[in-house]
């Protein structure tokens, strides 16, 4: 399938890159049409090679690749518009999104919509820094794209619509169920409806939404925790 892609540029981001042998990079591409796949970029490292500054995460690229195997070869790449610089906490946030995509996306599954959401999110991060609400919406989009989306306005235990005054929690593989307000991970019905309509505003709502999404993502991520969360710890603790 990738064969027909020869010499056609496709918008892409690199999710990750690491050294491979002496002068090459092994990168994980996230493309508009082909989803995520690994590729080798040959001869870009070492003395007098500076072009690899493009080959970093969060840089919007246009890339060409070839190869039939699982690991492709990147044949051409160029910047797609201005180079973006993520700094500080926005950078941590970028790592967090990349780690989510690396862990949850299947290779070679196209996710065109998600690619656009991701592009938009990176642009936002560069221009305005972290917007916690937008990050939550990104997580929701990711879950929807993967087919793990849950109905935020339905109480699955009682088969009733969510009551703005009630409290709910996440039940794996079912959705939301009513629970006591004291429950640590309880989320208020009102917040659920605001999350659904993408109108989160208050710090309390953001905190509840964060806990809910952490619980849902945690279920699909399994036992291994996300490493990029460790970066934020310093800010929350100290």
């Amino acid at each position: 399938m990738s064969h027909s892609n020869a010499n056609l540029f496709s918008p892409a981001f690199l999710l990750h890159s690491r050294n491979y042998s002496n002068s090459s990079l092994l990168v994980e591409c996230f493309t508009e049409n082909q989803g995520r796949f690994p590729a080798i970029v040959k001869g870009v490292k070492g003395r007098g090679k500076s072009q690899s500054s493009l080959l970093q995460p969060f840089v919007p690229l246009q890339i060409c690749w070839s190869g039939k195997g699982e690991v492709k070869t990147l044949t051409q790449y160029e910047a797609d518009g201005k180079m973006r610089h993520l700094e500080g906490k926005s950078l941590y946030c970028g790592f967090y999104m990349n780690e989510l995509l690396m862990r949850l996306l299947q290779r070679n599954d196209p996710h065109e919509q998600l690619f656009h959401t991701y592009t938009e999110q990176i642009r936002q991060l560069t221009e305005n820094g972290i917007d916690e609400a937008k990050l939550r919406y990104f997580e929701l989009d990711l879950l929807d794209e993967l087919g793990y989306g849950i109905a935020l306005d339905q109480d699955m235990d009682n088969q009733t619509p969510v009551d703005p005054q009630g409290y709910y929690h996440f039940i794996p593989e079912r959705g939301l169920g009513a629970c006591a307000a004291k429950n640590e991970n309880a989320i208020c019905g009102q917040t659920l409806l605001l999350l659904q309509s993408r109108n989160l505003l208050l710090p309390e709502q953001l905190r509840e939404a964060r806990n809910l999404l952490r619980a849902i993502l945690g279920f699909y991520l399994g036992d291994k925790p996300l490493k990029s969360r460790e970066l934020f710890r310093y800010f929350y603790n100290g």
Binding site: Q56, P57, E87, L231, Y234, G238
Partner: peptide
């Protein structure tokens, strides 16, 4: 290093020192 990882590292350490 001026890579994204180096940048993140610098920021993290910078915060530690600023604290």
């Amino acid at each position: 290093n001026p890579t994204v990882e180096g940048e993140a590292t610098a920021h993290y350490i910078g915060e530690m020192a600023r604290a």
